[in-house]
Simulated scan of single mutants.
Amino acid sequence: MRVMVLVKATVDSEKGFVPSPESMVAMEAMGRFNDELRAAGILRDAGGLKPSSYGKRIAFDGASRTVIDGPFAATSELVAGYWIWEVKDMAEAVAWVKRCPNPMPGPSEIEIRPFYERADWQPDSGKA
Rank of each mutant, 00 (worst) to 15 (best):
Y116L: 12
A91Y: 07
D61Q: 15
G81F: 00
D69G: 06
D61V: 12
G55M: 05
M104K: 09
A119W: 06
A119Q: 14
K56H: 10
W83F: 06
I42S: 08
A93S: 08
E77L: 11
G48M: 04
D124R: 08
F115I: 01
I84T: 05
F72S: 01
E111Q: 04
D45P: 02
F60D: 08
I42T: 07
S53C: 12
D120R: 06
G62A: 07
S64Q: 15
E109I: 13
A119K: 13
G48A: 12
A59F: 08
A46R: 02
A119C: 10
L78P: 00
G62D: 07
K50S: 13
V94R: 14
I42M: 11
A73S: 14
E117K: 11
S76Y: 15
T75D: 08
D45G: 11
A73I: 05
D45R: 08
I110V: 12
D124F: 02
I84K: 00
P103W: 01
N102P: 04
L49Y: 02
S53A: 13
G106T: 09
R118H: 15
S76M: 15
P114D: 06
A80P: 03
I68W: 14
L43H: 03
A74D: 12
V79K: 01
I68E: 07
L43T: 04
R99N: 11
G48S: 13
G106D: 12
L43P: 03
P51V: 03
E109C: 10
R57V: 08
F72Y: 05
G70D: 01
V79Q: 00
V94P: 09
A74P: 01
I42D: 05
A80W: 00
R65C: 08
R113Q: 05
M104C: 13
V97K: 00
E86Y: 13
G81I: 06
G106M: 07
R99A: 12
P105M: 10
R99W: 01
